[in-house]
């Protein structure tokens, strides 16, 4: 007959299997920190482009409403996005190798699908708004849709992703309330918050 320890072991293995099968645990915290640095670099560049030498909090002479400026900003945003995704893949691939798992498994596939649906919707929505001349909503919409995507995807990975999602949504809503400071909120949401949450995840799970 089995002993009580055996039953406890059974329960522990059930819990372990459920977690590991649902959650993508290879997600690298460090790549979040680096993505945050890319975003800060991108935001600084945009600051020099638009505000310099004035404070980003102050009045400005240039507005992000000329099409060359818009294309310039979009290019910076796309470079930041591509670099971040690339780094995320690369670091997660390394972590997966260390864990003896593949990066492309059931949990990561589900994670991708859950991320892509709100992100693609948000991305297209923002492009449509830009093409119709609604520039002011870009930063809030980026933050809000990104936050929704993270919350949607969080059941397949670490819980910090969920909290990061809530933070992004709150930042997005505040940003929508205070027009003109989009760049600052964008830098906090995509830069500072990625660094903070990425560092937390790195020290909790990557060690």
């Amino acid at each position: 007959m089995k002993e009580v320890q055996d039953y406890e072991k059974d329960i522990a293995s059930i819990r372990n299997m459920m977690e590991r099968s649902v959650k993508f645990i290879s997600l690298s915290g460090l790549s979040g920190v680096i993505a945050g640095l890319y975003a800060l670099a991108g935001a600084s560049y945009v600051y020099y482009l638009i505000y310099y030498p004035y404070s980003p909090f102050g009045f400005r002479f240039y507005y992000a409403n000329q099409s060359e400026v818009i294309i310039h900003l979009l290019t910076v945003a796309i470079i930041v996005l591509v670099l971040s995704i690339g780094t995320g893949f690369w670091f997660s691939h390394r972590k997966a190798k260390k864990l003896g798992m593949s990066i492309w498994n059931r949990a990561s596939q589900q994670l991708m699908i859950d991320l892509i649906i709100p992100l693609a919707t948000g991305g297209l929505f923002i492009l449509i708004l830009l093409s119709r001349g609604y520039y002011g909503v870009t930063a809030p919409a980026c933050l809000i849709f990104y936050g929704l995507a993270l919350i949607n995807a969080s059941r397949n990975t670490y819980s910090e992703v969920r909290y990061l999602g809530f933070t992004e949504i709150i930042l997005g809503l505040i940003s929508a309330l205070i027009p003109g400071y989009g760049l600052i909120f964008w830098a906090i949401g995509f830069g500072a918050m990625h660094i903070v949450y990425g560092a937390v995840m790195h020290f909790r799970y990557d060690k």
Binding site: S13, M18, S21, V22, S102, N105, R106
Partner: peptide
Amino acid sequence: SVLVANESYDFNSLKEIL
């Protein structure tokens, strides 16, 4: 446990996790 926690699971992912 894996199949109760997930809607469905494929053979290779199952192999990896077990």
